[in-house]
Amino acid sequence: MQIIVPMQQTVDLVEELELNDDGTGVEREYLKFVANEWDEQALEEALLLKEAAGGSVTVVGIDETDVDGTLFSALAKGADRAVKLTGDFENGISSHQRAAILAAWLGTQEFDLVMVGVQSPEDLDGQTGVILANLLDTAHVSVAIGVEPHEGGVKVRQEFGGGTVHELALSGRAVVGVQAATAAPRYVSISRVRAAMQDSPLETLPAADVDAPTGTTVRRLYAPESSSHAEMLEGDADAVAARILEIVRERGIVKELS
């Protein structure tokens, strides 16, 4: 089975997010970027599927900040091939544009399955995977929590609210949006990533020049205007603990403390 895993770079949410000059996006120049965590889950599930069914895993990244590290890390984890689609993407990429670029490249590739993170923190115009599937006119399953070989295709476990799961069989080419892999994403040491950098060069080629309007306009980004904010407790851990104890006691929540 030939599996393609698109990998997206996204803002590290641990960072304080600063807005660009016109307030319609985040200031990308100084922010730290990391691999989209759901794409890491998709990669892990793809590697598990390859181990179960044979075949290959190709990771593909668009030329975003620090994408090389993400792609080399994927090679070190067991991906067979890594492709970087180059271009000027410093101002970010919409999901529609990302999907169109991937669809154009996939048109030149042989593959059975695309496994992609179910979402990213930046996909305000929708999730890439489902848009991609419909551009390719293939089947799609979102919120997958397990993919395994099944009668020449795959069986996908799709999760719903409250933990209910549907099992679906996919018999043709498809795109699967992975929520969580069957196992936690594997660890790979820096030395193995370095070895991958030396042994397996990235294939680079220009990203297709696509026209993929979202039909939407971002007027502004802003921090949520919360109607309330927590009262912050001052002092060191012992002082904070003492105050929490007092609050819990005042509310009569724990009988033994009342």
């Binding site: 996909d123 929708g126 489902v130 551009l135 799609h140 979102s142 939407t216």
Partner: peptide, 17 residues
């Protein structure tokens, strides 16, 4: 999530998630 993006791709209608 499984419907909105596909509907946008198929119809060209703008999607806000």
């Amino acid at each position: 999530m499984d419907v909105a993006g596909g509907l946008s791709a198929r119809t060209g209608n703008g999607l806000v998630a």
